[in-house]
Amino acid sequence: MIHVENLTKIFGSIKAVDNISFDISKGQVFSFLGPNGAGKTTTIRMLATLIKPTSGTIIIDDKDSFQNPEHIRSILGILTETPGMYEKISAYENLEFFSSFYDRDKIAIKTSIEKYLKIFDLWDRRNWPVKTYSKGMKQKLALARALLHEPKILFLDEPTAGLDPESAFMVRKFIETLKKDSCTTVFLCTHNLEEAQNLSDIVCIIKHRIITISTLDELQKNSGANTEIIFKNNPEKYKDIFEQFSEKNSIKITDNRVIVNISDPKKTNPEIIKKLSDAGAEIIYFNSLKANLEQIYLDMIKN
């Protein structure tokens, strides 16, 4: 659905995006992660044909994006960093205005507006001017706007930022529904790593260049796993044993709890237990934890 090759964007002397390449298949949720100023928004803007790349190729829906910008914009929906709604007119009028630019008849537009305003719990307030809406309501309205024309590709820049937990849950559930339907490709930019972990098929970490790109499973596999052990007594005297197994020398000891990062836990964990038992350790609890995206992200950005 999206093919990006050697994409670069330079603003003056600043290389905002440096030679990135990736592919996203139809129906996948692609999480695009990175610190502020890493080039995420610039990449979205290039993909959405809002700005031209300095070099590189973007093929969307089998079409070169800069030769068919209107077609590309007609099949994508975008939720920008700020909701961006006309404050003086009503929510309904806002949605009616934005959806008029797509090739749809009036009945389809009205049906879509009603559908999404009801999904996001805004139908009862549809005739209120947007200036009376809370930040979260505006964010939900902007999401409804991005979905109105049933886009093939959905760009979501911080979709749950500013939402209360209930609304954030509603939005995440909605993205999950899109994922299940496999009709919409979702390009998700978020700083909420738990959200990315739960929703993504592919994770891409960027800091101008791509640091890593793979499925979450592969990332976790490559990052090893954490083994958590709780001892009855102080575990400091067993540190030598952990160091034998911890390839990355990542051992955290707090009170009687030890967390060791291990590359192949299936093979290593039984050996650790045996060595600790032989050394007379009294183990209360033993657990193997998968590395979460937050740890992986922080490690990669730090390195």
Binding site: A48, L50, E70, H71, R73, S74, L76, I78, T80, T82, P83, G84, M85, Y86, E87, F98, F101, Y102, D103, A142, R145
Partner: peptide
């Protein structure tokens, strides 16, 4: 007003020329 309400980006992201 377009700038104040940040509506320009969503507007130019539609198929409008």
């Amino acid at each position: 007003l377009e700038k104040e309400s940040n509506t320009l980006e969503p507007l130019i992201a539609t198929p409008v020329k």
